[in-house]
Amino acid sequence: MITGAFGYASALLAIAGVLYYLEAFRKWRVFRYLPAIVLLYFVVMVCASAGLWEKTAAINDTYKMLRNNLLPAMIFLMLLEADLRQIKRLGWRMIFAFLLASFSIAAGFIVTFALFQHGLADNAWKTFAALCGSWMGGTGNLAAIQLALDVPDSAMGYTLLIDSIDYAIWVMALLALVPYAAHFNRWVKADSRALDDVSARLAESKADQTQVSGGNVLMLLALSCVVSSLSQWLAAMLPASAYFSTTAWTVALVTLAGIAGAVTPLRRLGGADVVATVLLNLIIALIASRASFSELLEAPVYILAGGCILLTHGVIMVIAAKLFRLDLFTCGLASLANIGGVASAPVLAASYSKALIPVGVLMAMLGYIVGTAGGLAVGKVLSVIAGA
């Protein structure tokens, strides 16, 4: 069993490296159906469940340190290849899909609570309202609703379990669907020409970049880490609240830095996507390392309720995709921008095209605007159902 920080990080990198080798050189058939990044999530989750590493203080600190520092660095590097002039061509459909995802999540909470309320704890409507705020926005929105409804920390345990387990399964499912985007788009008759055109234009712009070299990689890695550190330092000095947390400020600052860097000669420096891909794989492994199949047995009713919420949300999104001809990228990103926020939406966007990272970041930032109000509104409906 691994108990040290370096052994933990080494294990995650080793798993990612082996999967890359099997995909790139062995050409295993399974990779035709499941991307390596999905298998990485699953394999790391299996290892966590098997107890390959123990959640010691050192490992917990390492997880927080790597995730909190590498995620802003990855976003910055991926934004260096962003061209907002092209991305704005995606238009109103993204905002419409985001609001539709928020509505379907609210519907999922209301339907699920009505079905499961007798098997839940007293005043569960309050904790579900807080979770709804989190799944519409982020942890800051959850904290705001918890404060507004006066929910004690001791009452949040099972709700946070839903947030951990069901969220992890949902992320894995959305990543697994990426290879089938073309089939889905044909089925719903989605007009994905704007997305295809933007992706093609952004891909063509990579031709102007210099060749990848060790020096480029070193420079980009150093720059991304400095930007991440400075963004967090500045964010800590800005006014934060439960509504807009320090993490939200960090993401906002690093996003501005990446967009600014994209109009400088840094844009032509080859290797940003290489370093960002390494960081992306490590971040995915870090997230998966906190999940465990054994936790599914701790509170089956709550885990099932979380699955019901996501199922309702998914069904509504598929119906809407068919009615409004929304492509899978738009639907999936809108879903994860709500449920996963800034920590996950850029990861899903990168699995389609690394150049689309800004779309994921900007859409996830919308969640901070609607999360608190949406969660409180759903909480009001749940309180009526509970007769509170």
Rank of each mutant, 00 (worst) to 15 (best):
F31A: 08
R32Q: 10
R32T: 00
Y33I: 00
Y33W: 09
L34C: 08
L34D: 06
L34M: 10
P35A: 08
P35V: 03
A36K: 02
A36C: 09
V38N: 01
L39W: 09
L40F: 02
L40E: 01
Y41T: 00
Y41W: 13
Y41D: 00
Y41Q: 03
F42V: 12
V43R: 01
V43D: 05
V43I: 13
V44Q: 07
V44C: 10
M45Q: 03
V46T: 01
A48H: 07
A48E: 05
A48L: 11
A48Q: 03
A48R: 09
A50T: 03
G51N: 06
G51Y: 10
L52Y: 15
L52A: 15
W53T: 00
E54Y: 13
E54G: 13
E54S: 15
E54P: 11
E54Q: 15
K55S: 14
K55A: 15
K55P: 14
K55F: 15
T56L: 09
T56H: 09
A57Y: 15
A57C: 12
A58I: 07
I59L: 14
D61H: 14
D61W: 15
D61I: 12
D61M: 15
T62Y: 05
T62P: 05
Y63L: 11
Y63K: 08
K64G: 11
K64T: 14
K64Y: 14
K64R: 15
K64M: 13
K64W: 13
M65S: 14
R67D: 13
R67Q: 12
R67Y: 15
N68V: 14
N68K: 14
L70H: 07
L70S: 07
L71R: 10
L71S: 08
L71H: 11
P72K: 02
A73N: 08
I75E: 07
I75F: 15
F76K: 04
L77E: 02
M78G: 08
L79W: 06
L79H: 05
L80P: 04
L80Y: 11
L80W: 11
L80F: 14
E81C: 00
E81F: 03
E81K: 05
E81M: 05
A82C: 01
A82D: 03
D83Y: 09
L84F: 13
L84G: 07
R85H: 12
R85N: 12
R85S: 12
Q86D: 07
Q86Y: 09
Q86N: 10
K88I: 10
L90P: 01
L90G: 04
L90V: 07
L90S: 03
G91V: 06
W92P: 01
W92A: 12
W92F: 14
R93P: 04
R93Y: 02
R93F: 05
R93C: 03
M94V: 06
M94C: 06
M94P: 01
I95R: 02
F96I: 04
A97M: 04
A97D: 03
